[in-house]
Computed example of a mutant assay.
Amino acid sequence: MSSKPSAIVSVLYPRIPDLKFNLDYYLTSHVPLTFKLLQPHGLLNGSVSEVVGDSDYAYNITLEFKDVQSWEKGLESGGKELTDDFKNFTNATPVFVVGKVVS
């Protein structure tokens, strides 16, 4: 049985005019890399959604963590490897929103 997350990290990829986003690479390579690097630090679950409608963002990735400290430790440990991989699937700079779960 998995733990209930107490921190949510949203990774938002902006809908820029010349956006390139290789969803196949993202799903088959970057997502497994994310879990490999962050799960030992408290990553519990994640989901990828393609944003619909007239939004400033094209993709929204939701990562659920045991707590904010788990996210920070994971970022410290694997953040560079993950950000170095961005060039393999997108030309956009993501926006990270970290929040504590309140309900």
Results as ranks from 00 to 15, higher is better:
1 M>D: 08
1 M>K: 10
3 S>L: 15
3 S>Q: 15
3 S>C: 04
4 K>I: 05
4 K>W: 07
5 P>K: 02
5 P>H: 01
5 P>Q: 00
5 P>L: 00
6 S>V: 00
7 A>F: 00
8 I>Q: 00
9 V>M: 03
10 S>V: 02
11 V>G: 00
12 L>S: 00
13 Y>P: 04
14 P>N: 04
15 R>N: 14
16 I>D: 01
17 P>K: 05
17 P>H: 04
17 P>T: 07
18 D>P: 02
18 D>M: 00
19 L>K: 07
19 L>N: 03
19 L>H: 08
19 L>C: 11
19 L>M: 12
20 K>F: 10
21 F>C: 10
21 F>R: 10
21 F>W: 11
22 N>F: 07
22 N>D: 15
22 N>P: 11
24 D>K: 15
25 Y>D: 12
25 Y>E: 10
25 Y>V: 12
25 Y>H: 15
26 Y>N: 11
26 Y>W: 11
26 Y>H: 12
26 Y>V: 08
27 L>E: 15
28 T>K: 15
28 T>V: 13
28 T>E: 14
29 S>A: 10
29 S>W: 08
30 H>M: 10
31 V>G: 13
31 V>D: 07
32 P>I: 07
32 P>D: 05
32 P>H: 12
34 T>H: 09
35 F>A: 14
36 K>V: 06
36 K>S: 14
38 L>C: 06
39 Q>T: 15
42 G>A: 00
43 L>M: 11
43 L>F: 02
44 L>W: 09
46 G>M: 09
47 S>F: 13
47 S>V: 07
47 S>Q: 13
47 S>G: 12
48 V>P: 08
49 S>R: 14
49 S>D: 11
49 S>V: 15
51 V>F: 04
52 V>L: 15
53 G>C: 04
53 G>W: 03
54 D>S: 11
54 D>F: 06
55 S>D: 13
55 S>T: 11
56 D>S: 14
57 Y>S: 12
58 A>P: 09
58 A>V: 04
58 A>W: 07
58 A>N: 04
59 Y>I: 13
60 N>H: 13
60 N>L: 11
61 I>F: 01
62 T>A: 01
64 E>Y: 05
65 F>V: 05
66 K>I: 07
66 K>P: 00
67 D>V: 03
68 V>R: 12
68 V>G: 09
69 Q>K: 13
70 S>T: 02
70 S>W: 00
71 W>E: 12
72 E>I: 09
73 K>R: 10
74 G>D: 02
74 G>P: 03
74 G>K: 02
75 L>V: 07
75 L>M: 14
75 L>Y: 04
75 L>F: 11
76 E>H: 06
78 G>T: 06
79 G>N: 04
80 K>H: 07
81 E>A: 13
82 L>P: 06
82 L>K: 03
84 D>A: 06
85 D>M: 01
86 F>S: 06
86 F>T: 07
87 K>E: 08
88 N>A: 06
88 N>I: 03
88 N>Q: 12
89 F>Y: 14
90 T>N: 08
90 T>A: 07
90 T>K: 08
91 N>Y: 03
91 N>H: 05
92 A>S: 14
92 A>F: 08
93 T>Q: 05
93 T>E: 09
93 T>A: 09
94 P>R: 04
95 V>E: 08
96 F>E: 01
96 F>R: 00
97 V>A: 07
97 V>C: 01
98 V>A: 09
98 V>C: 05
98 V>G: 02
99 G>C: 03
99 G>P: 02
99 G>F: 01
100 K>E: 12
101 V>C: 01
102 V>T: 02
102 V>L: 09
